[in-house]
Design a protein around this nucleic acid. Structure first.
Lengths: 208, 208, 208, 208
DNA sequence: AATGAATGAGTTTTCATTCAT
DNA sequence: TATGAATGAAAACTCATTCAT
């Protein structure tokens, strides 16, 4: 794979090439989930995938590209899943529930990817020392804040600061999954019920 | 001082010894906060402290001990600060507010330590691959859950699952600080007001 | 075409085969001229040629053969050009001028090839660690020394050691081109005039 | 060696530190002289010095610094030796001879260093792809050109372009040593005599 | 005739730790 | 008590080459 192994604008990636890339991405996610970002070396990832170290270098520009890809693919897939649910709901109240439950269900169904994504998002730095995901996370918060605002405008939600509330709700959702992920004996359905209940009590108009 | 430089059970640690250890711990916290757990090498920490690398190895059993100590000291100090506030409150409602605001205020006043603590807690693994902080975090949640239960028993809070609610509230608090820490232009007092408002709306008895 | 792709003794090398080989040789020369012998990897050469890396391995026994060929082709071509000029001159004096000016003009007209040749000649080692070009360079010097001797015999040149003088003149010529190649703002015609003048003053009989 | 291992501005380099650096520099020169710039890896240099690879990284910022140092030290030492001789001569004619013979003698007495220096100067590239020695080489040529000009002004030398003549003479000197270095059976004193004779015939005033 | 894929050997560099002083 | 020096292990990455297709 000499040319064009950049993420965007790939044309004519062979089937085998695509399969290998996905195999490596999967192995990388598993490794990061297992041993943490700091200990996820290319050696370990290669071992996890059952391939030689240099195969990774062959298919990816570098560790950087690989890590970003692992996180990005998961973020994109989970967003797609979640937005489909959100759009199906007519009211802001319903959309908030759909957002949270969509997120939770997708995360729960993809434990490894979720763990890897969290680890990468919080630890990865670009060559210049900056975090390449901050922009996206901000956008996610903005989007959710807009949803809350809509609910306020429509009289479904009470008055509160939409942006900091968005931060609170979204991080709470992640926190709940993190708790479950560490201790799978917890009943996730119950947990999510509690969260939805909690959130709706917090934001709905008082005199409903 | 080659042996027995463990944290607990130290007797007769000389003044100079203690001073050096604290200097190193401070430098380690600053380094982790700046470059992240994965990039915080002993070299960088020594450079930050303006001392030689081997000083660290001399005063600490290893990098492991140092990292754990950085996080532990911060956790202990913030807990002490916060519990003092909580104990001063008579009602569960007041204690919840005190817990949250105590946490927020301490974190906000110790930005570097907070960043380092979060980074270490989420990334550090013992030699056996386990996370040495899970136990403590669980205890913290349990303690807060007991507080919530007390509030339910006393009729201040409505019915909900105390433990998952505790997770939600505690992680929300951390999330709020994380957001502020990344963007110090936010008005922290406002943010905290929103959080307290949010939480109390979520847990208080309906017909108060 | 896995076997027998050595330079000499090829029979029935297809047209397409020959074209590919020359394309690769050109790309190799360009790469060496640009980034230097030490940094001229097959990857870079393939990239320069716009072909896949393995094409090179297919058409050449190895990097070794390719590098030798790049230099050899240039040496042969420049020698051919130069000797044609030399043979046209009747006197030793004229032949010395023709040799130098022929060399200079050919080098100047083939900047890339010249740079690559110099880089390869001075850096390339065979598998046994020896330099495969020393013999040829010696022969070149010998040939030029014979020309100088002829001039001495014919009374055109004064007495001096022909071989060391040959070394001096030939390397001076290369040095002049090297200087021009690094700084193309220099007036090459002027420079060459200086060199010819210099050489002839140095070797002609005193009482001419 | 944590801090201050930059080339310039070193203060208080310990004796052992300085000794190690010189040992490594010597080993690096030997290695480059033996196997050529392109094959002189840190592994080979360490092997040559009989030390572990990481000792080099400990004492030098990187391969780059080491290579530059090897060449620079040799250039500085040879220049010092040569200039002392040149300054002792009253006439331009004498200074030209002193320059050439000084150079030749120093190079001949330090064969390894000379070979390494030539190899590094012609091959080494800085991180940005530029050659860090071109400036110095230019200055050397300028300095020699000024000497030639002085000789012209004083009526010792005939008219010619000083700068291109300087290039010719200086590179001829190097070429002569290169030839001797490859074949030590040559009589260097004879060779040098030829060169001096050659040069003086080329530049002196006609009607002396 | 061509090449995508793979790989082991090798590159430079950083790491945490040990040890003599 | 402190540290300069040393080092083996491991890091990310590049290399020339092989091979199945």
């Amino acid at each position: 794979m000499q040319t064009g192994n950049n993420t965007t604008g790939r044309k004519r990636a062979s089937f085998i090439e695509q399969a290998r890339r996905e195999q490596v991405i999967r192995a990388a996610a598993e490794t990061v989930a297992q041993v943490g970002y700091a200990n996820a070396s290319l050696s370990r990832i290669a071992e996890q995938a059952g391939i030689s170290k240099s195969v990774i270098s062959y298919h990816f520009a570098g560790k950087d590209e690989l890590m970003v890809l692992v996180a990005q693919q998961f973020i994109d897939a989970s967003a797609e899943f979640m937005f489909a649910r959100v759009e199906a709901e007519p009211t802001a109240t319903g959309q908030v529930s759909a957002w949270i439950s969509g997120q939770v269900e997708y995360y729960a169904a993809h434990r490894t990817g979720f763990l890897a994504m969290i680890s990468i998002i919080t630890n990865h730095r670009s060559a210049d020392g900056s975090n390449p995901f901050t922009g996206q996370l901000d956008e996610e918060v903005d989007e959710f804040a807009r949803l809350l605002q809509r609910g306020q405008r429509d009289g479904e939600f009470r008055a509160f600061d939409p942006r900091s509330t968005a931060v609170i709700i979204l991080r709470s959702t992640e926190a709940l999954i993190s708790a479950w992920v560490m201790d799978e004996s917890l009943d996730l359905t119950d947990q999510m019920g509690t969260l939805l209940d909690f959130v709706h009590h917090a934001i709905r108009r008082e005199n409903r």
